[in-house]
Design a protein around this nucleic acid. Structure first.
Lengths: 204, 204
DNA sequence: CTGGAAAAGTTAGCGTTGCTAACATATGTT
DNA sequence: AACATATGTTAGCAACGCTAACTTTTCCAG
């Protein structure tokens, strides 16, 4: 006499729905509102409507929550970069520009999470999961560069040039978020910069 | 939690005499030990041998202390960059490399302070003093680039190319501190990278 | 069906933190 | 000598991360 089962295999609902999910969501928005270090777990609990002790039934500590949240964000970032790369054929200079633009766009769209992802080694970024996820993202850049130059992905030249491109968009993202760009940055200027750098580092 | 005060001439005076200075010093070392967000003012007080309320006779709050500490660090960074620029004549490509190297070297030497300086807008970086100090540092780069190209410092081309160079060393510094460099980074490789970027962005 | 194990929530409380208020002592000027 | 000021103190607040102990809900074996 089982009732109709939902089309989606419903996860086990115990007390108040799946708190784990709601906490991750609350933390994600709080990171955007107050920065990766500026929010409190207690705030997230209030938003999820539970006591401050509840999270510890699902996570070991604050660090473990941050890792889970960061892992998701890295997935979003990676898929957006992959989509940008897929939108252009290999050897097209616009492919390099689009990839860099996707990186900067993510930083602009989710500045808090961007900071959290690259929060520096002191933070919760020592996890193997996170390192692997980061490597997968880096691998996208390497493959695009390798395709562009017609060289194997593991060649030293590809690695260095991919890293140089990464450094540029990474630095630009941080400086932009920090409001340090010393001139008015229109979309056109940014595109122009990306093109200059792409052409300079990956000449056609 | 044994934060014993360092060996200092033991004055059992009620008035410390030099607390402001010692607090700034304690905070500076704590920032290196625990990161810009990972230390507590209370720790600094213990190191300076005073109560946790003492700092508030010299600073308004934590933010004001951080601003003072950051301001000093920016001075160190700027003087090291200026020295690097002064060590080579204009138009020498090695001048560009040396300037970038000074930037990265500072990040390596004082990673905590480097992070604190570029701690993103949420932090205590809205101060006019800090912005001016940052502008003065940026001005060094602009002048070096202008000298190199024989163009006026306020030309758009100089500004963009100086900013691109800045983005690269900034991104590289952060990625290095975050242990994200995807290959073995010897001094030689780093120099090679700086040269590639310098030559690509500022062709001779 | 049922009863116990386990999952997932609660309240209470510890220690630390940033900061304030009220008080105490040293310093310097008159 | 005396007062004003600068610079320390102790006591205490509220918020935080986290733990312990307890309660309630759900699952599952017999």
């Amino acid at each position: 006499m089982n009732d109709l089962e939902p089309a989606v295999p419903e996860k086990k609902k115990y007390h108040h729905g799946d708190l784990r999910e709601q906490l991750l969501e609350a933390v994600t928005t709080l990171v955007e509102e107050h920065g990766p270090e500026g929010f409190s777990l207690a705030q997230a609990c209030r938003r999820a409507g539970v006591s401050t002790a509840a999270p510890y039934k699902h996570f070991k500590d604050r660090t473990e929550i941050m890792q889970a949240v960061i892992l998701r964000a890295m997935g979003r970032m990676r898929s957006q970069m992959q989509a940008a790369a897929d939108a252009h054929p290999a050897r097209d200079p616009r492919r390099i520009v689009a990839l860099g633009q996707a990186y900067v766009d993510f930083a602009r769209a989710e500045p808090g999470m961007f900071q959290a992802i690259f929060g520096l080694a002191e933070g919760p970024n020592d996890s193997e999961l996170l390192n692997d996820a980061g490597d997968r993202t880096g691998s996208i850049v390497k493959h695009v560069v390798a395709d562009h130059r017609g060289e194997p992905v593991d060649s030293q030249d590809v690695e260095i040039r991919a890293y140089i491109l990464w450094c540029f968009v990474h630095g630009h993202s941080f400086l932009y978020l920090d409001d340090k760009v010393p001139f008015e940055l229109s979309g056109k200027v940014e595109n122009h910069m990306l093109r200059i750098v792409g052409d300079a580092i990956l000449p056609t």
